[in-house]
Design a protein around this nucleic acid. Structure first.
Length: 411
DNA sequence: TCTGGGGTCCTAGGACCC
DNA sequence: TCTGGGGTCCTAGGACCC
């Protein structure tokens, strides 16, 4: 006799104000104060002679940085992720400003994810501070809808890191993602299908993961504000307005339907580096700055590829102009590469195809069409990774690219 | 006092091949 | 010479997410 299929039980776990909370572990004297994380490296706390630390204040910030994370005390002033630091300074001038320290956040990210995996191994990474977890087959989970497991996960995360998180547990990823927000911080929210109308439909449609500002505005133009409005909308209208694919998805999402599995492993599709300049640069007048900057990005990208063990066959550039318009160009090479000089040459070729009249705000380099180094038949030759001992001219010829002046990298 | 850096997925047109 | 259809690859842009 076949066993009945257990009902899916999916958790979404979201760390509370992650970067800011990690910083509070390091600087406990800031607990309860408005603190924002963001900007460059130049506002790190300074240890004073009396042993106390001197922190930078938001009011003194000058630059183009944005808030990455704000503590709940800072959010009370209306400052939140994505807000420009200069704008934030007007709202909360006395807030403490800390630089981002990704190395530290990655460390805590590993700690909390390992703690979760020790309890429930089916974990999907959704960035540094959130994960989905499939609890369906965890013994006992079906008995109470996952509540005990949810509590155990939260306790394990706190034990491992000293940090709190918020968890939503429902039959699918879409609903769990919504529910983990319900009781933040330090929340645990369970929801079943028969509660969708009561608890999900009142929410604004843009709270659904996948409905961004553009789609929300178009929905609003149709008179659709809440998820309930969306659920009640004529499917034919959604299909004709948003296309078959997205229209059908909108309808399903509003009804809380989502069959996506929890995916525990995925190969990267692209690796990139980009930088926003301190001031807008002109391609001709600021060439002396721009050229080495591009080279540095290519060198950093080559380093990333090597460290992660990938080679790329499609190199692309990304430019953001002073009017915020974004342009991309890419070039597919005859063979995979992870060599900084080859990447630099390809990026240079791409750059030639762009009208550089306007000033530039951002420059980026991307490596796509990735292959794992281990999967390339002969990484030295036939798979296209040209030996680094090869002369630049030979390499250029092998890639069918003209050789042009390569500025020396800055130290 | 505008708006970071690193990603994914989708669409769409043109080239090219069968 | 003209007319087709399908499939894949390449390129560019855009929406969205953390």
């Amino acid at each position: 006799m076949p066993m009945p299929t257990p009902k899916r039980l999916i958790a979404h776990l979201d760390m509370d104000a992650f970067y800011a909370s990690v910083e509070l572990l390091r600087y406990p004297e800031l607990k309860g104060l408005p603190v924002v994380i963001g900007g460059g490296r130049d506002h790190a706390p300074v240890l004073q002679s009396d042993g106390t630390r001197r922190f930078a204040r938001l009011r003194h910030y000058v630059g183009r940085g944005v808030i990455t994370t704000a503590t709940y005390a800072a959010r009370a002033f209306g400052v939140n992720s994505g807000l420009g630091l200069m704008k934030a300074a007007a709202l909360a001038p006395d807030a403490v400003l800390l630089p981002v320290d990704f190395e530290q956040y990655r460390r805590y990210s590993r700690l909390f994810k390992d703690a979760v995996r020790a309890i429930a191994p089916l974990v999907e990474d959704r960035g540094i501070d959130e994960i989905y977890i499939d609890l369906t087959e965890i013994p006992g989970a079906q008995d109470d809808g996952g509540r005990a497991i949810g509590q155990a996960l939260k306790a394990a995360v706190f034990d491992a890191t000293g940090l709190t998180c918020s968890v939503g547990i429902t039959p699918n990823k879409l609903l769990s993602k919504l529910c983990s927000e319900f009781d933040k911080p330090d929340g645990l929210t369970l929801l079943q299908e028969d509660e969708i109308a009561q608890r999900i439909w009142p929410l604004p449609a843009k709270r659904i993961n996948g409905i961004g500002p553009k789609a929300a505005a178009r929905l609003e133009a149709l008179g659709i504000r809440s998820i309930g409005d969306l659920a009640a909308a004529d499917p034919a209208l959604l299909l004709s307005t948003f296309g078959a694919h997205y229209g059908a998805w909108l309808h399903a999402a509003a009804h809380g339907r989502d069959a996506r599995p929890v995916v525990t492993f995925s190969e990267p599709k692209s690796i990139s580096r980009e930088t926003t300049f301190e001031r807008d640069l002109h391609a001709v007048r600021d060439r002396a700055m721009l050229t080495p900057l591009l080279t540095e990005l290519c060198i950093a990208l080559a380093g990333d590829l090597a460290r992660k063990g990938y080679a790329s066959r499609t190199i692309g550039i990304k430019l953001r102009f002073d009017d915020f318009r974004i342009v991309t160009r890419d070039l597919t090479l005859p063979a995979h590469t992870m060599d900084a000089r080859s990447i630099r040459r390809a990026a240079g070729e791409c750059l030639k195809r762009v009208d550089l009249t306007r000033r530039l705000r951002l420059l980026g380099v991307r490596a796509g069409a990735l292959a794992r180094l281990a999967d390339l038949v002969n990484p030295g030759a036939s798979a296209g990774l040209l030996p680094s001992a090869m002369k630049a001219e030979e390499r250029a010829a092998a890639y069918g690219l003209p050789l042009f002046d390569m500025p020396a990298p800055r130290d």
